[in-house]
Nucleic acid binder design. Structure first.
Length: 888
RNA sequence: AGGCGGAUAGCUCAGUCGGUAGAGCACAGCUCUUACACAGCUGUUGUCGCGGGUUCGAUCCCCGCUCCGCCUACCA
């Protein structure tokens, strides 16, 4: 029967079809439209699609499609990030599988291996992103290591250097002994560990006599101590300041100094100072002129200065020290204590603070405009609360270590003169040293932090440093959608770089979404084994259902707990839509156009009502999209589609569509069904592009493709309509009452009840048109419509504002049950009335509450009074019937 | 230590610019009624975390507290 629409929706084949048609097709540019631009947060080229990407891309795609349907000129730039450390790790592992040691290759050989690897990964993350239906502007795809990007990075570095924002110096940095590179502050994450606090005695003589007891978590660094420190205010240790003590186990003497950074209540109030292996100690040491003393090498092993510990790993060295100290009587006690441990965010290896020669960017001055931009509203955060976190970080910003000791990345454009030690920074290698004219210039060995290039993403992808037409038209970008986890890594740095190099914000709005967790609220991690693969979900439930799930659950500031039951629910929703259109199709087979519908001339009550409801739903969706309330927009769509369109409108239409084809209301209803259907598809399209695209192609092939349609927009409903809508809603409520009664009195749904509608004088004409609807929806056979004389009619009575429905339930229903039911209803109603009445009686309420609130209460009281009357007479009627029956 | 967010029906979450609390899922009963059993109809459940305050009225605003999550910080 439904030749055009198959019985069930098959997401897999539909998606395959649409992806093969539309994937990576050219962007439709709309020169007359308002420009709207986004850049995706570039995923690592090593990455595989995970839930975070899926959420991120889906939300952007919803916005992109919505804006396109508003006629805007949408540019949404895809791309990937070269992910220095991660990529180097991947290729290194591959090499070692082939039995090739990294060091056996030259740097150039290694880098070309990485490029080979990059070209070889076919089903890369961007391909996986297309599975989501992402309507990206593919011809704008960029890579942070492509030629243009690399030139821009060099340009930025040189400019920053010349402006004095870049310097090279020896500082304490975070060192990853596995990745063998420096990391910036934000690349260290902290994990809570149950550590041990060791109380170690430092004697006044090399033996274990009188001395100071130090509480430390790192006994393996004891041989690198340069002092002990106490708080200058600490009464206990006043006499010790300026004296000397011996490092346990060896004969080295160190001073006792006073520094206010020492917390007197922690441990014993005595701190050992290890300048080379602790950030905090380094600061104290520099205040007191203590020299560095390194005993741990770059791979995390103890060096020759560590004496007996030489060659051991940090862990083994600690164990050995603890043994020795205990054996020789220097260990006072051990006490377990929680401590946070810094680990590499890429490989989880414990970070070693180390003194090292690195490149840094001075951040303070760059942070100023970035703070101002948010403060004065030039950049807006959604949700707004994130700006506090943002300010906090920028206001306390520290210099950014941007050099990395790896091979894959943007080389630092600096050369060091072998003769005079001069450093030259330039766009390309200079011929000779500008200071001593030597030609012996060595390229700086380091590469730049990947985030250095990512920070330039919004403007470099648009062509900077050239002043391209794209840059002029699409910069600043309109919206950035990202996760809060890279607020500092990426967002804040883009703002700083954006203002510094373009004088403008890189984006207007920042939408920050939450984390996708598992159904129990746990973070998805490989080690927990609770990772859900988005591709599998899409295979199983369809992409539209998956997208709808993510969008619906994207409430601001709240993590998403993804459960397959949820996705299943939305798969059902997609299926519901599909079936609704199969119904529509049945009554207008072969149609290809959208019919004209003039809301003001509509006659059918259901038609008037659905148009009004639709216009409200559309307005709500528009409002929610503007506020980035994706969850509410999805909710509106869901509710309208399922509960209004399917549950009421389609059902109501059945009472009209069984009439002869030339019935005017039938004709109107078919037109409205097809029209509202077309609107529904347009509304749903940004969230569910596949199923809507497919249905549109089948049902509205005479129109332009759905992607080129505009998002619906309706004028406010007229007041004439709103009166009709209220009346129809009263009829819906009446249907609800009958159904409720039927269910409570256990009347089987298949039984058609005989009945009649009795309405007040003059209301006959108005209610005549609702008879078919009431009949069908409440499953009653309405023999007649009576005007006036409502009270005297017999039968079970379901009251409503203008009259009552009278049902003949002789022999079907236990009248005593009905009496009980009515009594219960009446009780509930009276309870409600009592609270309103109490409020209205209160003098204070009458004096102080606003008039509209009082009015509303009065209206409520009056209406419920009518309801009580209706129920009362229904009850009286039932009682009379009981009596009569009893009399038989 | 500081900051942020959360605490609402069995579960997951909306919401109320302060005026009788609402969805989905789950559960129960009934139903193959012109698309849909991936469905329809009906129903049940809430001291809106605890204690104060402001107010005619607080689940919503203010203060304090408890628990949970996250972020930041040089707790050795």
């Amino acid at each position: 029967m439904n030749e055009r629409i198959p019985k069930t929706y098959d997401p897999a084949s539909t998606e395959r079809k649409w992806l093969s048609l539309s994937s990576k097709k050219k962007r439709i540019s709309r020169p007359q439209g308002k420009p709207f631009s986004m850049t995706i947060p570039p995923p690592n080229i090593t990455g595989r699609l995970h839930m975070g990407h899926a959420l991120n891309i889906t939300l952007q795609d919803v916005v992109a499609r919505f804006r396109k349907m508003e006629g805007q000129d949408v540019l949404w730039i895809p791309g990937t990030d070269h992910a220095g450390i991660a990529t180097q790790n991947v290729v290194e592992r591959q090499l070692s599988k082939e039995g090739i040691a990294l060091r056996s290759l030259t740097r150039e050989e290694f880098v070309s291996r990485v490029w080979e690897w990059k070209d070889s990964i076919k089903s890369g993350i961007l391909d996986q992103i297309t599975r989501l239906g992402a309507s990206l502007s593919w011809e704008h795809e960029r890579f942070t290591m492509d030629a243009g990007f690399s030139r821009a990075v060099t340009e930025v570095f040189v400019r920053l250097y010349r402006e004095g924002f870049l310097y090279r110096g020896e500082r304490m940095i975070h060192w990853c002994p596995r990745c063998l590179t420096a990391l910036s502050d934000v690349e260290v994450s902290y994990v809570e560990k149950n550590g041990t606090l060791y109380y170690v005695r430092y004697g006044e003589s090399p033996g274990r006599d009188q001395g100071l007891v130090v509480a430390t978590t790192r006994p393996e660094t004891i041989f690198a101590d340069q002092a002990l420190a106490v708080n200058p205010e600490d009464a206990r240790y006043q006499g010790w300041i300026g004296r000397k003590v011996f490092i346990p186990l060896i004969q080295r003497e160190i001073p006792v100094i006073a520094d206010s950074a020492v917390d007197p209540v922690f441990g014993t109030g005595v701190l050992k100072i290890t300048p080379s292996h602790s950030m905090a100690d380094w600061e104290i040491a520099s205040r007191h002129g203590l020299p560095p003393f390194e005993i741990i090498d770059r791979e995390g092993r103890m060096n020759e200065k560590a004496g007996p510990l030489k060659g051991l790993t940090r862990e083994d060295a600690r164990e050995k020290m603890v043994e020795e100290l205990s054996a020789r009587g220097f260990m006072e006690k051990e006490e377990s204590s929680p401590s946070s441990l810094g680990v590499c965010y890429r490989c989880q290896t414990v970070i070693e603070p180390a003194l090292s020669l690195q490149w840094f960017i001075r951040m303070k001055e760059l942070a100023g405009p970035a703070i101002d931009a948010v403060r004065n509203g030039e950049i807006r955060f959604f949700p707004d609360g994130w700006k506090n976190t943002y300010y906090d970080w920028l206001e306390n910003i520290r210099d950014w270590c941007v050099s990395r000791q790896i091979w894959w990345g943007h080389p630092i454009p600096a050369w060091h003169c072998e003769s005079c030690r001069e450093t030259v920074v330039d766009l390309s290698k200079p011929d000779r040293c500008p200071r001593c004219q030597s030609e012996k210039l060595l390229a700086d060995p380091d590469v730049l932090d990947t985030w250095f290039s990512s920070a330039l993403w919004p403007f470099v992808t648009l062509g900077w440093p050239e002043d391209t037409p794209d840059l002029q038209r699409f910069y600043p970008t309109s919206l950035l959608v990202t996760g809060f986890d890279i607020l500092f890594f990426w967002v804040a740095r883009m703002v700083m770089m954006g203002y510094h190099f373009t004088g403008k914000a890189p984006f207007r709005d920042v939408y920050i979404h939450a984390l996708v967790r598992d159904q129990f609220g746990q973070k998805m991690t490989k080690s927990k084994g609770n990772v859900v693969d988005p591709l599998e979900i899409m295979d199983r439930y369809g992409t539209d259902a998956f997208r709808m799930t993510l969008v619906h659950m994207a409430s601001p500031g709240r993590d998403i707990r993804l459960s397959t039951e949820r996705v299943e629910g939305f798969r059902n929703f997609v299926s519901k839509i599909w079936n609704a259109f199969r119904y529509v199709e049945r009554f207008a087979p072969g149609e290809t156009r959208i019919p004209e519908v003039d809301e003001r001339s509509l006659q059918g009550p259901a038609n008037q009502w659905i148009m009004a409801s639709l216009s409200k739903a559309v307005a709500d969706m528009r409002r929610y999209f503007a506020l980035y309330r994706f969850d509410e927009a999805a909710n509106t769509l869901y509710h309208f589609t399922w509960h209004l369109y399917c549950d009421w409108f389609i059902e109501a239409s059945k009472s009209v569509l069984d009439r002869p084809d030339d019935d005017p209301e039938k004709k109107e209803t078919v037109r409205v069904l097809r029209f509202t259907g077309s609107v529904l598809l347009r509304m749903a399209h940004p969230v569910m592009p596949f199923v809507t695209g497919e249905l549109w192609e089948i049902l509205y092939s005479g129109e332009a493709p759905l992607e080129e349609q505009t998002f619906p927009d309706f004028p406010e409903s007229s007041s004439k309509i709103s009166g009709a809508v209220r009346e129809f809603e009263a009829m819906m409520a009446l249907v609800g009452d009958v159904r409720q009664m039927r269910s409570q009195l256990k009347i089987t749904p298949t039984l058609e009840i005989q009945g009649e509608l009795a309405v007040g004088h003059g209301a006959r004409e108005r209610y005549e048109r609702h008879l078919a609807f009431l009949s069908r929806m409440a499953r009653i056979s309405l023999a007649s419509l009576r005007e006036g004389d409502v009270e005297s009619r017999s039968g079970i009575r379901i009251p409503f504002a203008d009259g009552a429905l009278l049902l003949n339930l002789d022999g079907v229903v236990n009248l005593v049950d009905e009496e009980k039911r009515l009594t219960r209803e009446l009780e509930k109603l009276n309870q409600k009335r009592a609270s309103i009445l109490a409020r209205l009686k209160s003098r204070e309420f009458r004096e102080k509450a606003p008039p509209d609130v009082i009015e509303k209460d009065e209206r409520l009281l009056e209406e419920s009074g009518e309801e009580v009357q209706g129920l009362d007479s229904a009850l009286a009627q039932v009682r009379r019937m009981i009596e009569k029956e009893g009399g038989h």
